[in-house]
């Protein structure tokens, strides 16, 4: 029963959700909203599982003085700091001038932006590897990337200023992006859509059970 009940719920809800997409009549018209609300409620309750797990693991690390346990102290301290400030400031904790928003704007956001900024360097190193002309396909990729990148900056058009308007590098870059690139991406999208249909049917029919464990 531990597996049959989730499978039955998945099957019934799956079928109902497919059906509701084609039926505008109440109660089908509201089902999407209801299920979204229910999911949000479950999600909000489940966040405590995650938060408590994080605290538990950090506390274990501190107690056992495992390697880098000092960072666990930072996690626990930051967790309680933000939770306590949020509770003290009440409903308006997100308002301007609150300590919570100060921490968010001047601590969290810069840290987050720093992580995001690392992407610039990773793009460079990944591009270096991807664009090495090892075989025909990689050389093709290198050529396309070269012209697209050059076509996206003003110097591309400056270098090809002697050509008529529609034949400059910016036009070539747009053509590569709008036709070969878009065609390839749409082919992938069609495959993804069919893959989702197939996976959904496997789950609804109970053929796919590995997400429940033990299969």
């Amino acid at each position: 029963m531990r597996r049959e009940i989730p499978l039955a719920i998945t099957g019934i809800v799956g079928v109902v959700f497919v059906v509701q997409y084609f039926i505008p009549h109440f109660p089908f018209s509201r089902m999407n909203d209801w299920f979204s609300d229910w999911f949000s409620i479950v999600q909000a309750c489940a966040i405590w599982l995650g938060a408590l797990n994080l605290l538990k693991i950090s506390a274990q690390k501190i107690a056992a003085r495992k390697s880098d346990w000092i960072y666990s102290i930072v996690i626990v301290a930051c967790f309680f700091l933000i939770v306590i400030i949020g509770f003290i400031e009440g409903e308006s904790f997100r308002g301007q001038g609150t300590a919570f928003s100060w921490l968010y704007d001047y601590v969290y956001t810069p840290l987050s932006a720093t992580m995001f900024a690392i992407l610039a360097f990773f793009v460079a190193s990944a591009s270096y590897r991807a664009f090495r002309a090892r075989n025909f396909e990689a050389t093709l990729l290198l050529g396309a990337a070269f012209f697209v990148m050059l076509g996206r900056v003003p110097v591309g058009d400056m270098l090809t200023a002697f050509l008529p308007d529609g034949y400059r590098l910016s036009a070539l870059a747009s053509w590569v992006m709008n036709f070969p690139q878009a065609a390839g991406q749409r082919a992938i999208m069609i495959g993804i859509a069919l893959g989702i249909v197939s996976t959904s049917l496997r789950i609804i029919l109970g053929i796919e059970r590995s997400h429940l464990g033990g299969e």
Binding site: I188, M189, G191, I192, G195, I196, S198, R202, E208, S210
Partner: peptide
């Protein structure tokens, strides 16, 4: 790539 992610479980099983 895309659909292969969804095919993976069936393929491996």
């Amino acid at each position: 790539i895309g659909e292969e992610l969804f095919a993976a479980s069936a393929y491996l099983s």
